[in-house]
Nucleic acid binder design. Structure first.
Lengths: 257, 257
DNA sequence: AAGTGGTCTAGACCACTAT
DNA sequence: TAGTGGTCTAGACCACTTT
């Protein structure tokens, strides 16, 4: 007798103890399927946890975990003392990530990082504010061009606080460190980063670097990275042509697994 | 004797049983604080779960939950049979929300939705493909302008499949339904939506509607919504001037709570 | 008072990894 | 084989909401 079976169809109404799929995940999928097929509609109240315990013959902790999962995924909302309720489509609940951006790098594709410029300059007022230093203090200014399959993809400009006692400047300047930032490999003393995304129009220099014609729209991904003491050590921004990058996501009940 | 105390400082090394903060959350915060202050650095292995059980005198399930929390937040990664490891800053792990977009609407601010046009047209090739219908079939074309505090914020164009037997067309056309999409209130038969975000340059008409001067960059948020049978019923896109919208997030170890 | 979700216990068994 | 994370049980108590 096989110890493991295939994934149960989502229409199933029982927990398969032999499945490789954990009971809490099965229960979550059963409930999600019922929401997806309209058995429970937006606003409806789900069966109580104790009812689910009896109905599917699992322990309360398992039900709880399935509930937490669906709540995290935005399928339902919970209210203590009242119950669990099906949520409808809410644009405000949407989230999107850098998956597309990550794919550009990790896809076994040739990624080249070309250092265009690296020099020590005095921080202007804006740079000083971003890096929490005094205007006029010395910073390292870097310009890089990231190419994928010999086509320019990102134009990156960055200001680093200049601190000879800290080796991060050298490691930051390594071409590989940038790629590591995306994939998570490599050593850094970075603790945290703040990111923001804007839409922008390429200027002449940016268009030249990215080899696109004007006028052209692009994403500008600005970043500030902090060290372990929450001190900013890097401020910069990536420019990526809009045709090279698109963010996608879904809202509402996930499509059947 | 007070039954509830204040939030413990994150530097604490013990679980406060009297705190209103759940034990699993306290443990997660303790570990997060240790990561944030460099006690554990990126790549380091955390104490095993059984060690944590002994050290903080909680049950295995509580430790597990704290571990899951940190793992979900991207602070650590887990590997069965090997251990838990501290993750560094990974750009690829960043996620953005629509919170900024939601705030624009729900902030008790005056939001007006003005229907500029509504008429039945024949679907062109592209529209038909997006809505999974045949070219030439009738669709409803809508143009809307969303204003916040009397300033235009979003220019929205949308194609709806025309189905007299389904009341969603009428409810979709209600000015309130758009706002409900963001905040989650209101009734819909929508089950799911796919979104994608591009950067674009405003054309003349868009700039006129949004009352900005050319040339100007903007976000284009395209959407397709599906009903309970996974049939597309709406395809459209929001145009939002870049100065009106910016997506932000953080990566790495969250700043101390 | 009854029902709900939220948390927690003190174990157990399993699968996986390293030695 | 020993140690690790992953899952699960069968209860318990608490806080909250509704009747």
């Amino acid at each position: 007798m096989p110890r493991k079976k295939k994934l149960a169809t989502n229409g199933s109404d029982r927990i398969d103890r032999e499945s490789f799929e954990p009971a809490y995940a099965q229960l979550a999928n059963i409930l999600r399927h019922q929401v997806a097929t309209g058995v429970f509609q937006p606003g409806d109240q789900l069966p109580s946890e104790s009812q689910l315990v009896g109905r599917y013959d699992v322990s309360p902790m398992t039900v709880r975990r399935a509930i937490n999962l669906l709540s995290d995924q935005g399928v339902i909302s919970t209210a203590q003392g009242r119950g669990c309720f099906v949520r409808g489509v809410e644009l405000g609940a949407a989230t999107f990530g850098f998956k597309e951006l990550q794919d550009l790098f990790s896809n076994k594709q040739q990624t080249q990082v070309k250092l265009l410029e690296a020099r020590v300059v005095s921080a202007d007022e804006r740079t000083a504010r971003k890096l929490n230093i005094n205007p006029g203090e010395r910073v390292v200014y870097l310009r890089r061009l990231l190419s994928i399959e010999n086509r320019p993809a990102f134009y990156h400009r960055e200001y680093l606080v200049y601190d000879p006692t800290r080796p991060v400047v050298e490691s930051e300047m390594e071409v590989t460190s940038l790629q590591g930032l995306f994939s998570g490999v490599g050593e850094t003393v970075l603790k945290r980063g703040d990111l923001s995304i804007e839409a922008t129009i390429l200027n002449e220099e940016e268009a030249r670097q990215l080899q696109v014609i004007l006028p052209s729209a692009a994403f500008c991904i600005e970043h500030v990275f902090y060290d372990l003491r929450d001190k900013p050590i890097s401020w910069g921004w990536f420019i990526c042509h809009s045709e090279r990058l698109r963010f996608t996501t879904s809202v509402g009940v996930p499509r059947a697994d």
